[in-house]
Nucleic acid binder design. Structure first.
Lengths: 210, 210
DNA sequence: CTCTAAAATGAACAATGTTCAAGAAGAATC
DNA sequence: GATTCTTCTTGAACATTGTTCATTTTAGAG
């Protein structure tokens, strides 16, 4: 047994195929929704048998969960890229970035938030943790803006605020629900953050509804 | 052809069976989630063949959608029962009632909001409309509290606020996501409405975070 | 009672997730 | 390089579940 990674031919092929399967699955989910994802379609597109998909991911949920894992990773990366100089601008930036990311990858986000496991198997902890971490990204700017507040309460506030934004955006982008007309969504989100910041005493309460 | 409802024996049986199928389907969704709903289970529990389910509802989506339709009707009835004397109390009441209803029927609400149609068939318009109407129930109290604001903007605000609440509650109640710990949820919702009302200038901006 | 139309039935079919015995391919040993 | 061993790949077979439809049953009409 060699400790050094040998990059054996076998491992290379395996890894390449793994990536290929994920790319194909992501493409299908993104284009046609999670419900249109079929093992045989993925296998055929990847040029391998269905057995290989199972060999690599255990079961079909394994493919979905891996795509979801990468989705939340990509989301987190985008959110971490929001400038942090001005905490107020950072909050607006996080909201806007979440909206953009959601709008650009709606079906992937829905797969992340709506996929249910068969029976009562638990959702993988690491994915839950990553979502939690993403939703905690409002914590630092809020701490700067509310220096006297309890840290635990700020943590809750961050998740509450993020969950609220998630609700506005996920329902707003769903043409079938039309909770908020899409064109207006960006403006609505901005106004929502506005109101929230005024309510928290971070911004002055000015004229009601511009 | 007789215009008067004859309540023929045939129609009675048909109707009774219809109700029975719906009750059973709702029970399964409520107890074990939409993904555990199976035609054969429903048919067996209702003491009829699978064909009869199809005869009555067209396809399996028909059963699900009918349950969803009744869910949003029940929700709307509950929300309409919130006292309307004091508009501020009404807003808190709507939030609290939505939380209670969601907590009591989490799987039914998830079925309503997360069910995707096969292929690209559209979601029935009447259900969408009913959800929209439910989300508009904050409109009247908001109009009373913001008499100078544009009516269209209040309409948007109502849906935005409701969508935000929906996000906080649906993620908060999801033990798998734990965006907000369940025990804290009621308090979090109240505080959220609080902040929102202060931000809108409806309540005075007092001490930051009680 | 007989006839007709509607409904119920459930076996057969179709789509799709899952398994596994057999074979193929790479790695290890000589 | 041949042989052996390990691992991966394959795809047919199976399991589950939604859907159809020819046949039978049943309620209502004459």
């Amino acid at each position: 047994m060699n400790n050094v990674q040998e990059e054996s031919l076998r491992d290379q092929k395996k890894y390449r195929r793994r990536l290929q399967i994920l790319e194909i699955a992501r493409g299908i989910i993104s284009a046609k929704g999670l419900r249109s994802l079929k093992v045989r379609d993925v296998a055929e597109a990847a040029g391998c048998s269905v057995g290989s998909v199972y060999n690599e991911f255990g079961d079909f949920d394994g493919v979905i969960l891996t795509v979801n894992r990468e989705t939340v990773q990509a989301l987190t990366a985008r959110l971490r890229g929001v400038p942090a100089e001005d905490p107020v601008r950072q909050l607006y930036g996080l909201a806007e970035t979440y909206l953009d990311f959601f709008a650009g990858h709606a079906n992937l986000l829905r797969s992340l938030f709506e996929h249910r496991m068969e029976d009562d198997r638990p959702y993988p902890d690491d994915i839950l943790q990553m979502v939690m971490d993403a939703f905690a990204l409002m914590h630092p700017p809020l701490v700067r803006l509310l220096p006297d507040a309890d840290d635990v309460k700020i943590a809750l506030l961050s998740r509450t605020l993020f969950s609220a934004m998630h609700g506005i955006i996920s329902l707003g982008l769903e043409e079938r629900m039309v909770a908020v007309p899409p064109q207006m969504l960006r403006q609505q989100i901005e106004q929502f953050v506005d109101t929230q910041l005024r309510g928290l005493g971070i911004l002055p309460v000015g004229a009601r509804l511009s």
